[in-house]
Write a protein that binds this DNA or RNA. Structure first.
Lengths: 152, 152
DNA sequence: AGTGAAATTCTCCGAAG
DNA sequence: CTTCGGAGAATTTCACT
């Protein structure tokens, strides 16, 4: 899909505040509210904007422990298998196949260390996992939402 | 702050769709629209809800390459130093201090491999970085927004 | 893409538990 | 003292230009 500079500015404004009114966005990009809505609808339909979400402080809802786990898998493991398996665990908030030593990187969030240990144990029990290497998150230093490059 | 089950359900609904109307949320949690707004305002003020953002498909806005970089730092490096340094690079979308072999884990997003290489070079030039280990993301398998535990 | 209007939704202020 | 429901104000959303 073709995205012009106005689209990018609209996206950036929605990333900054997903509940901004169309009229407000329109005033910042010199467009009427209906014109903004049409563009947003088009961007959503095209999958450029996947949705709108509230950014929640995990600690405030009882998730205090975060970790990244590198997965080492058996030779025949497919990305689809890893995807299906990791999606089953509610503690998994993201998972990627990666190049490097490990085969996949899994981002976990748990209530506490005990809960994390449980989740890790379950993950390690997956038949294709040969070993894991964990990094516990001590502190979050940076956490930007997706940055949209400034229109040229 | 005290969060009850209704708050948690409101948070879950907003995570699923940050542009949902207060009236719609209210009908799902058996509350009037004004009552929902009061709660959301309170949750925002308390920092439980940090904000509302659009979820953008990075590839659609020209960011096609993603990677995780483990940072190994000199002995005297403080988390604050790493935070300040990593925040300077626009390619850094997240950074954490971690336990394990590495001192920090940096999540990078770049336009392409060449851009990623540049960003990595700049990151490695930070005076406290002794070495790095990179994982290039091959595919995103799972990408859930923050999951809110179901009210008990 | 803009304009105007109808329907919906937001947000303040008073009322009740 | 906190939480909820109703009325004016703003916003969304549609047809048409």
């Amino acid at each position: 899909m073709q995205i012009d500079g106005v689209d990018q500015r609209i996206i950036a404004l929605l990333v900054a505040d997903a509940r901004a009114s169309y009229a407000d966005i329109g005033s910042r990009v010199a467009l009427s509210a209906p014109a903004v809505k049409r563009r947003v609808d088009r961007l959503r339909a095209a999958g450029v904007i996947r949705g709108f979400t509230a950014v929640v402080e995990p600690a405030a809802v009882g998730w205090t422990t975060e970790s990244f786990v590198e997965l080492f898998c058996t030779g025949r493991t497919t990305p689809a298998q890893i995807a299906v398996a990791t999606r089953r665990h509610p503690e998994v908030i993201a998972a990627y196949t990666v190049s490097g030593e490990a085969d996949a990187l899994v981002h976990l969030r748990a209530a506490d260390i005990a809960h994390l240990e449980q989740a890790l144990e379950r993950l390690r029990a997956e038949p294709f996992v040969t070993s894991t290497r964990s990094m516990i998150v001590l502190s979050r230093l940076v956490d930007s939402p997706t940055v949209v490059p400034a229109p040229s």
